[in-house]
């Protein structure tokens, strides 16, 4: 097991859309968005099984999500977290003075974190904002 560096993008998925409209505080939303989609090749490099929790870290923050195999692929070297609080914990807030953060194209490192949990929405928010206990 070792850390890998990868380019992170975020965006919509239909599961994210459905879960979002069904209630962001619900567990379904965590399951739809608290994930990172990676390619087989990248799984091999990382040396973990699919559906393992990983810690994603960028210059902007760090978050635990579940690594799953990309449903839409292949795209080695590019990982995808659906738009939502998990992605936003690590995406780049650099705007180049356009007002728009760089939601797509943040360099991140991924490390296995099988013992850490993917936080539910509200807990994640509170932890991120006020450092409340996990």
């Amino acid at each position: 097991m070792s850390a890998i560096s990868i380019n992170l993008i975020s965006g919509r998925t239909i599961q994210q859309g459905v879960a979002m409209e069904g209630g962001k505080e619900k567990d379904k939303y965590r399951k739809a968005c608290g994930i990172i989609e990676m390619d087989n090749e990248d799984f091999k490099k990382l040396g973990v099984m699919k559906n393992t929790n990983v810690e994603v870290t960028s210059a902007y923050g760090s978050v635990v999500v579940k690594a799953i195999e990309a449903t839409q692929g292949p795209h080695p070297g590019v990982a995808f977290i659906p738009m939502g609080p998990w992605a936003n914990t690590v995406v780049s807030d650099e705007t180049y003075s356009t007002g728009m953060p760089t939601f797509k194209g943040t360099p991140v490192t991924i490390e296995p974190a099988p013992d850490k949990q993917v936080l539910p929405t509200i807990k994640l928010m509170r932890y991120n904002c006020w450092g409340e206990e996990q």
Binding site: M20, G84, N88, V90, V91, D93, T121, M125, N128
Partner: peptide, 17 residues
Amino acid sequence: SDPGAHFPIRCVREIAN
């Protein structure tokens, strides 16, 4: 809208404060 879910974390923290 839901900036809490869709803004980068630094901005979300500022909203919370």
